[in-house]
Design a protein around this nucleic acid. Structure first.
Length: 280
DNA sequence: ATACGCCCCTGGTGGC
DNA sequence: TGCCACCAGGGGCGTA
């Protein structure tokens, strides 16, 4: 699931449990994630004090006092498991990294599909990391303006859906929130990027922001301490307007004969959902 | 430079 | 119950 709002929620959950704590022990069970995890990761974590957290796009950076930062990416199936040291339960399957704090908190990084990533990066060169260097602006920051987006989309002969998924256009949107934002902005995912008008770009920026903010708020409010009762951090229920709703009536135009309901199409091998009647 | 298809990997679901 | 095809929220990389 993890797109920007979920990653933000995971980060806040980690912050609540780990900020200021000393990491007493770390165990790396598997190194073969998306890229090989640095073998020295457990050594770097052990004894470190957690100083701060930062999110960039769908990446989490955990800053450690006097050590490199830990770069975390959840991939498609990554989540964090929260618990206490010494709960005599079998560790969950696919738990590739376990961290324990000196005051007894246990955090496990679980990622069945192993599309996720863990890496180390110098604190003063985080943005130069290969995975962060090419990213576009943060959608919730000022740099992501209508002017900027219009300039980025200008002349691009690719569907707006693909352009928004491109992390160099704007960083942190994924397959779900692109569908949701395009629905709210009344723009078909099939429209070519270069054909989105200035007025529509303005609306799109506003709706992207609103969609993400609402989802972050939902993550914080539906999860107690940002975690499921099970202690799982990474997934939460949120009401989507179109995503996954193929065949259902469009909530925006009930009873309108022109509205055939939500449709699913495939673009670059991935599902898009929209209402053809209201998204020209 | 840009755009597109493929691929990494595991698990859940629904049809037969 | 078993088997199988298909689907999944990411993103890098090779190719045209």
């Amino acid at each position: 699931m993890p797109e920007l709002p979920e990653v933000e929620t995971v980060m806040r959950g980690l912050e609540a449990r780990l900020l200021g704590r000393i990491l007493a022990r770390a165990e790396l069970r598997r190194r073969d994630l998306r890229w090989p995890v640095p073998a020295e990761l457990p050594r770097v974590l052990s004894g470190a004090r957690v100083e701060s957290f930062r999110r960039r796009a769908k990446y989490i950076l955990m800053r450690l006092a006097d050590r490199p930062s830990v770069l975390i990416h959840l991939g498609m199936s990554g989540r964090m498991n929260l618990g206490s040291v010494g709960q005599n339960e079998a560790p969950p399957a696919h738990e590739h990294l376990v961290i324990e704090t000196s005051d007894g908190t246990r955090v496990g990084f679980v990622d069945p599909r192993r599309f996720g990533a863990l890496d180390l990066v110098a604190r003063d060169a985080e943005d130069a990391h290969k995975l962060l260097a090419g990213l576009g602006p943060e959608p919730l920051e000022k740099a992501f303006s209508a002017t900027h987006l219009a300039a980025t989309l200008a002349g691009r002969i690719t569907p707006i859906k693909a352009a928004l998924l491109d992390q160099t256009t704007v960083a942190g949107l994924g397959n779900i929130y692109v569908s949701e934002a395009l629905f709210r902005a009344h723009i078909s995912p099939e429209r070519l990027a270069r054909d989105v008008t200035a007025t529509e770009v303005k609306l799109l920026v506003r709706e992207i922001r609103a969609t993400l903010k609402e989802a972050i708020a939902a993550g914080g409010s539906t999860l107690r301490d940002y975690a499921q009762p099970s202690g799982e951090l990474g997934y939460f229920q949120h009401g989507f307007k179109v995503y996954g709703k193929a065949g259902e009536p469009c909530a925006r135009c009930p009873g309108k004969p022109a509205c055939q309901g939500i449709v699913r199409i495939v673009q670059s091998g991935r599902s898009s959902f929209y209402c053809p009647a209201t998204q020209p």
